[in-house]
């Protein structure tokens, strides 16, 4: 009788500590008793709460950082636009005007990209996007994405080698997957040195269709393989390169919605990103 009362009191005490924001450690007793089970449940609750809190905190920080970053990032082009608008106003030369307009246009597209990414991310987060896996022509989609980065690749004299096995087909949403591949390619180009090669290859085994993009660029540090796919994550080797850490995150989200997954492998030098799509 008194034993039960004591057990109840212990539970109440634990709850109090939890309410006060303390973290409960797991009990060392694993008895098949109600009190032991409750203790265990409370410890898990504590774990969950602190996990949630940390996650929230992290997200808050990330958002804060992102806002700061966006603001920062926006500020530059905006400042540029300001100055170049002034210059444009003041310019009399047609060629000068042309040049300034070009710069204004590129700046604007930068900002456009920013805001678009932002919107995409928001949509993904809110699961407003539907993946329609109605296209089978994977090769076409990949080629499209390659074409989209061609300009950027050419700018750095990067050669893209595309290898695809015969008759590779995989159900996918052409738009979204294309976007995902585009992000990966863009990344590779961004962090590859000039005059290098990027290998794009598609293969299939019994279980998966594998799309890999391999570069010989700066790569990432050990242990970052899983991190680079996180939202807002900028690798340690990204010194100076513009970006918000959203590309690979979006890519992974899209691939997950395809019921597949993405993996990163360090190539030293360089990085290999592999997209696995289920064969169905």
């Amino acid at each position: 009788m008194f034993h039960r009362r004591k057990e109840m009191q212990d539970v109440s005490f634990l709850l109090e500590r939890l309410l006060n924001g303390e973290e409960l450690e797991f009990s060392l007793e694993y008895k098949d008793e109600l009190s032991s089970k409750i203790h265990y449940q409370l410890a898990r609750l504590s774990e969950k709460i602190s996990g949630n809190e940390k996650k929230l905190q992290k997200e808050r920080d990330e958002i804060r950082e992102l806002i700061a970053e966006i603001a920062h990032q926006m500020r530059n082009p905006l400042a540029n636009m300001e100055s170049y608008l002034e210059l444009l106003q003041a310019a009399e030369d047609k060629t000068e005007r042309q040049a300034y307009l070009e710069i204004l246009r590129s700046t604007q597209s930068q900002m456009h990209f920013l805001t678009e990414s932002f919107i995409k991310m928001a949509r993904l987060e809110n699961r407003l996007i539907q993946i329609r896996r109605d296209s089978a022509a994977l090769s076409e989609t990949i080629l499209k994405s390659i074409l989209q980065v061609k300009n950027a690749a050419d700018a750095k004299n990067i050669f893209i080698e595309y290898t695809v096995a015969e008759g590779v087909q995989a159900l996918h949403d052409a738009n979204w997957l294309g976007e995902a591949i585009f992000n990966v390619l863009e990344n590779s180009i961004k962090y590859s040195p000039c005059d290098s090669v990027i290998w794009v290859s598609v293969s299939q085994n019994e279980m998966y269709t594998r799309i890999s993009v391999t570069d010989s660029g700066t790569g990432i540090c050990e242990g970052e393989e899983a991190l680079i796919f996180q939202r807002f994550y900028r690798g340690k080797e990204t010194h100076g390169q513009p970006g918000f850490g959203l590309g690979l995150y979006l890519c992974r989200e899209i691939v997950l919605l395809h019921r597949g997954f993405v993996k990163a492998k360090r190539k030293e030098p360089g990085l290999e990103i592999a997209i696995f799509l289920p064969r169905m």
Binding site: H3, R4, E7, D32, E33, L34, S35, S36, K37
Partner: peptide, 8 residues
């Protein structure tokens, strides 16, 4: 106090 797992 016994755990409430008699049913199973």
């Amino acid at each position: 106090m016994r755990n409430n797992n008699q049913k199973v």
